[in-house]
């Protein structure tokens, strides 16, 4: 039973990640490869504030999401000028830079050894200690992020973002400030993914840089692409699929050593098949060019 809760907590975390990335890719048309880095910033800032400064869970997660939002300038400012492949390269280098910071700034992050003993969340005196209550908390966060995303995507802001994705010059000709739109979209997406990073850190209570590598960014990307970008339900479907695949492998009794590789293989295959059969993803409506 605990195992199911464990999966569901991961599902919540992945849904938040996928939704935030979908905002950039599906609505902004910006292929962001640094998302795992911002997820990492969320996890690290939350963990450090709680472990080293003894902050409570709520203030820590809010501050970490603000920090991540502000650091999103590293990708959003270049996005003013760079598009397409150039932007992909740029976000790639931001991903690598932030990862090496986490890895090498040993005084602060303890480098490859990571941070241990991250306390479980305590809110208003209630300690989220058992897995059920943590699941409750993560679901509450997923619902909150979902609601925020839902309202934003349906709002004139979301529509302006879509216009920018479809044709930036035409959008500017109608008076849309596309630079501001990019800053806002990245801020919101990076702040949101930091929340899931904080949740992850407090749930597993131990983090190290390996969870925030480029591989992880690509995994997030494939999750969004497989689910389908450009609408609300796509990322949820994508998160579900990515959680389900390893579990199905497990039920098929495939040895762990093979399963790990088989998992990546299946993601890859799935991506190729999707590109051919349903370029807009399982539940999406926009094709990424």
């Amino acid at each position: 039973m605990n195992y199911i809760y464990h999966l569901l907590i991961y599902l919540d975390i992945y849904i938040i990640i996928a939704m935030s990335l979908n905002l950039l890719m599906g609505y902004g048309g910006l292929l962001q490869l640094a998302h795992a880095a911002y997820y990492g910033i969320g996890a690290y800032v939350t963990a450090l504030l709680m472990v080293k400064l003894g902050w409570g869970f709520f203030p820590a997660i809010i501050l970490s999401s603000m920090v991540s939002g502000i650091l999103s300038l590293f990708v959003s400012l270049p996005a003013w000028r760079f598009k397409g492949d150039y932007f992909v390269m740029l976000s790639l280098s931001v991903q690598v830079a932030i990862y090496s910071l986490l890895y090498n700034w040993t005084d602060l992050t303890n480098g490859p050894f990571g941070i241990t003993g991250i306390p479980r969340p305590v809110i208003l005196g209630f300690k989220f200690d058992d897995i059920k209550s943590i699941f409750g908390l993560s679901t509450a966060f997923a619902l909150l992020c979902g609601a925020v995303m839902f309202i934003l995507l349906k709002s004139p802001w979301g529509r302006a973002l879509k216009a920018m994705r479809d044709d930036e010059l035409a959008a500017r000709g109608l008076g849309k400030n596309t630079r501001l739109l990019k800053l806002q979209a990245f801020f919101i997406a990076c702040a949101m993914v930091a929340v899931s990073g904080g949740l992850y850190a407090t749930y597993v209570s131990y983090i190290d840089p390996t969870s925030f590598t480029l591989d992880e960014s690509i995994l997030m990307l494939s999750m969004v692409v497989i689910g389908g970008i450009g609408n609300f339900r796509g990322p949820i479907v994508g998160a579900l699929t990515l959680i389900a695949i390893p579990e199905i492998l497990r039920f098929m009794n495939i040895p762990d050593a093979i399963a790990a590789n088989a998992r990546l293989l299946i993601y890859g295959l799935l991506l190729i098949i999707m590109a051919h059969v349903r370029p807009q993803g399982l539940a999406g409506e926009y094709r990424f060019k």
């Binding site: 925020v148 309202i151 934003l152 709002s155 004139p156 802001w157 979301g158 529509r159 302006a160 879509k162 216009a163 994705r165 479809d166 044709d167 035409a170 959008a171 109608l174 008076g175 806002q184 919101i188 450009g230 409506e285 926009y286």
Partner: peptide, 26 residues
């Protein structure tokens, strides 16, 4: 804007909509 309906194409153009600020929209 090819992925939008005709109505959205026109509606998106309106300037100074409060809802274009994400904080206001929320």
């Amino acid at each position: 804007f090819p992925t939008m309906t005709t109505l959205e194409n026109v509606a998106v153009a309106a300037l100074n909509q409060k809802g274009e600020n994400p904080a206001w929209a929320l």
